[in-house]
Simulated assay, not measured.
Amino acid sequence: MQIGANSLDLLPETLVSLGCSFPCVITDKTMLELGYVAKVEALLNQQNINFGLFTDTMPEPNDTSILAAVEMVKTKQYDCLIALGGGSAIDSAKAIALLASHGGKMSDYKVPYQVTEISLPVVAIPTTAGTGSEATKVTVISDSATDEKMLCMGSGLIPAAAIIDYQFTLSLPSRIAADTGIDALTHAIEAYVSRKANLFSDQQAIAAMKLIAPNLIKVCQQPDNLKAKEAMMLGATLAGIAFSNASVGLVHGMSRPIGVHFHVPHGLSNAMLLPTITEYSLPGAPRKYAECAMHMGLVTVIDDQTLAHQTLINELKHINQTLNVPTLAEFGVVKTEYEGLLTNMAEQALASGSPGNNPKIPVLNEIIELYKKVWL
């Protein structure tokens, strides 16, 4: 990992350290418009590094959106990928590297399959402080035929290198800063309370909460606050490391089907769910949720767990209100369509495996009731 302002300048030497000399940049049209692709191109040109460029990754990528890039990478025989963008671009690059190296289709690799195959190296350059995908063994790619968000996991999906330069987040619109920031906070909390949490993941999650909680609202309301931007960027990466080693829980399990069926951006659907699902889950890990309140700087001691819990829930609601997170109804989800898909979404949530890591493990009907609760 190269971390800090201007760490992008270290891209050429990072490629050398990986033994790579013919990269393909995987990105999207927004990165092109913002001039970020030009920055990467200039660095590579200065060092006379030949490269390819694919700019057609899509938000919430599906298995067909990556096929053209897979073919391009195989045909041109690039020796690594540079993933420039948010979680969607990085997730796409991981999937492209996997399919270009080993063939098959994405559904072959979804959980419970463990991706241990070593693929083309990916150098991840995140431009949002959110998904943490630059540091995780996870990619999420939708099945275009069934609308299922396929969760693929395994050590073979961890990027070979990451460049964590917070200056890429300075031009983020406040809506994207809010959604990706709440996504990062969700990662930290869910990793900390996960049934798969361990001493290592706990340390990353604690550090992430301490960085994210005091700065989440600041980065949205004060886009020029460089210290807050830097803290959020590092916090998001640490949260990624935390959940990559401890998994996420019910919030993510329920969030993915909402994203697929109603095209709600991933971070935003997490935000819609976080207060309600946290409140539901409290009895499963009362002490750890109280500790979340403490690590987020909301309480100084946790002698009174009930007070710590209430303070935590109030803060999660306050974040949503302050950052104008809409309910599903306000987002424009049609109630009859939503209700018609409740059972299907609950089944998809359970099938992802994430609810099984939750401190309080739900059954199908409980998930349906929780979906009903968050609509308004």
Rank of each mutant, 00 (worst) to 15 (best):
Q77N: 12
L211W: 02
Q348A: 12
M58A: 11
H102E: 05
Q310E: 14
T180D: 04
N365Q: 15
L364E: 08
E33D: 15
A135P: 00
I82D: 06
G85D: 04
A208G: 06
I158N: 10
V111F: 10
C292S: 11
P355K: 02
K137Y: 06
P61M: 02
L328F: 09
M1F: 08
P126R: 07
S171W: 01
K105M: 08
A129E: 02
M209S: 02
E117C: 11
K360I: 04
H295V: 08
C220N: 00
V73H: 04
E148D: 14
A42F: 10
I118P: 11
T14E: 04
V363Q: 13
V140C: 00
Q204F: 10
I189T: 12
E330T: 15
P355D: 05
I3R: 05
I3C: 07
A161K: 06
P283I: 12
I141T: 03
P112F: 03
S7Q: 13
I217L: 09
A308W: 09
G156D: 08
A97W: 02
P59D: 08
E190S: 14
H263K: 15
M150R: 07
L18H: 09
L376I: 12
V16H: 13
G130I: 05
T300F: 11
G104Y: 02
P359V: 02
T278C: 10
M294V: 02
P23M: 00
A290E: 06
N344I: 13
L15I: 03
T336P: 05
K39Y: 04
V16G: 09
I319K: 14
H102I: 01
A349P: 00
G87S: 05
G132A: 07
A135C: 14
F243N: 00
T327L: 12
G4Y: 00
P59Y: 13
I212Q: 00
I90L: 03
L216N: 03
E13W: 02
K29M: 12
T237E: 12
L32Q: 13
D108H: 10
Q204N: 13
D9V: 07
N344F: 14
C80M: 07
I141F: 07
N50P: 02
